[in-house]
Design a protein around this nucleic acid. Sequence first.
DNA 1: CTCCCGATAT
DNA 2: ATATCAGGAG
Length: 193
Amino acid sequence: MELEYENPFQLLVEAILAAQESDKVINKIRHELFKKFPTPHSIAKATQEEIEEVIKSINFYRRKAKLLKECCEKLVELFKGEVPTTVEELIKLPGVGRKTANMVIGGGYNLPAIIVDRHVFRVVQRISLSKQKNPDKMEMELREIVPQEFWTKFSMLLLNHGKRVCKSRNPKCDECVIIDLCEYGQSLEKRKK
DNA sequence: CTCCCGATAT
DNA sequence: ATATCAGGAG
C-alpha cells in the first residue's frame, strides 16, 4: 500500500501524518480529512480538537493535529497557501523536515529529490552504498553518488524495496534482486544453512 | 537523547 | 511480549 494523493498539498499533509505510521491508516482517513479540510486555509482556521477528531486513528494524533494546524497557518502566511517547490522553503513549515520536504518535491512536483526515510536509510546502510549514520548527511552523500536525473526514481525504488523486501525485522534476502551487491544479505543467507 | 501514540505483525 | 510503523520537535 502506498500513499494516495491528488496534489502536492495532500501529499504534504499525508506525509506529516505518516511519520511512524503505516500508509494504510493514512489512506483510510484521507477522504474524510480532505472532504472536511480541502485547503490549507480550512485547516489553519480549524481548532486542534476538530482536526484531532478526524485523524484520531493515526498515532501521535494529538501532536500531529497541532503541527498540521501550525503548518497550514505558516503555509498561508508565508506562501499564500501554495505549497513551495524547494526544500529550503518547505522545512520552514512546522512538522516538515528534510525527509518530508523531499517527499513533496519528488512525489508531488516530480522534481529531483533524494528521500532518506527509515527504509532508504536502512537499505543504503545494508548495501554499504553510504555509511553515514545521520539521514541528512546520507542525503548529501547520495546526491554526489546518484545522477540527479535518477534521484527521485532511486529514492522511490529503495523505499519500496525496504518496505517489501529489505525489511527491518525479517528481511526477505531470498527474494532480493540485489543480494549480489549486499554483504549483509549474503552473510545472513549463509547463516541459515 | 526522549517524547509523541496506538494498532498491527511476528 | 515486543518490534515496527513514508519522522520531527525540544
